[in-house]
Design a protein around this nucleic acid. Structure first.
Length: 220
DNA sequence: CCCTGATTCGC
DNA sequence: GCGAATCAGG
């Protein structure tokens, strides 16, 4: 197939929206990302700085889901400002007494993911993005997670083999579960192979997406 | 390893 | 003009 006006138009549109060459290629079909890049250059719109509006929108890199591919990095709240008052003790999480009650204190555990239940992934946000006020941190652990000790133990175990990736090393197929305290050097993302279609690896999917069970009240 | 865009160069 | 191959980088 060739570059029909229609296809070129779509290319321009998507490129302007910040889509990557591969995404555009996938969308257009019959072309490789190289072809897209080549065309982009020939059209002279490579810089991508054609924004006329003052909307210097880096936001374009967000959702992007038209056909079947989606998946946006879910743990944006990982950027916790220097814990102003965080007593944040125990910098060393080791010592796993097989009988220790464990306070189950998910450190930088993502709050967002824990919501999926009943099959359908929790509705993130209808229109716009959450966008944290940027003023106050959000240390008060909201989640009243109820993860079984075994499951938690398994996760702990798996986390020992985490690939410890940095934010930029994450891809659609790496587990994006944050581990450690963002305010310290002891912070990274799991990075193990993620379950197809999910943002986390097997172990983390199991704690992030719990199969509604303890929800006796209110059934539909 | 995976993914980005940039460039080159034979067709 | 086209795009695979290759390069440079995160």
């Amino acid at each position: 197939m060739s570059w029909t006006d229609e296809r070129v138009e779509l290319l321009k549109k998507m490129w302007a929206e910040g889509k990557s060459a591969s995404q555009i290629a996938k969308e257009l079909g019959s072309v490789t990302r190289n072809a897209v890049i080549g065309k982009v250059h020939r059209l002279g719109l490579s810089s991508r700085g054609g924004e006329t509006e003052g909307a210097a929108s880096p936001a374009a890199a967000a959702p992007a889901a038209s056909t079947a591919s989606a998946e946006a990095a879910p743990p944006p709240e990982a950027v916790v400002p220097q814990a102003a008052s965080a007593p944040a003790a125990e910098p060393e999480p080791e010592d796993d007494a097989p009988e220790a009650p464990e306070p189950v204190a998910p450190r930088a555990a993502p709050a967002a993911p824990a919501a999926a239940q009943g099959g359908v992934v929790a509705p993130l946000v209808p229109g716009r993005r959450p966008i944290v006020p940027a003023g106050q941190p959000l240390p008060p652990q909201p989640s009243a997670n109820e993860i079984s000790p075994e499951a938690l133990a398994t996760v702990r175990e798996v986390e020992k083999t985490a690939r410890k990736l940095s934010l930029m090393e994450l891809t659609e197929r790496t587990c994006k579960w944050p581990i450690g305290d963002p305010a310290t050097d002891e912070f990274w993302f799991c990075g193990l192979p993620s379950v197809a279609g999910k943002p986390y690896c097997e172990a983390h999917v199991s704690v992030a997406f719990q199969p509604m069970q303890a929800r006796r009240d209110r059934r539909r």
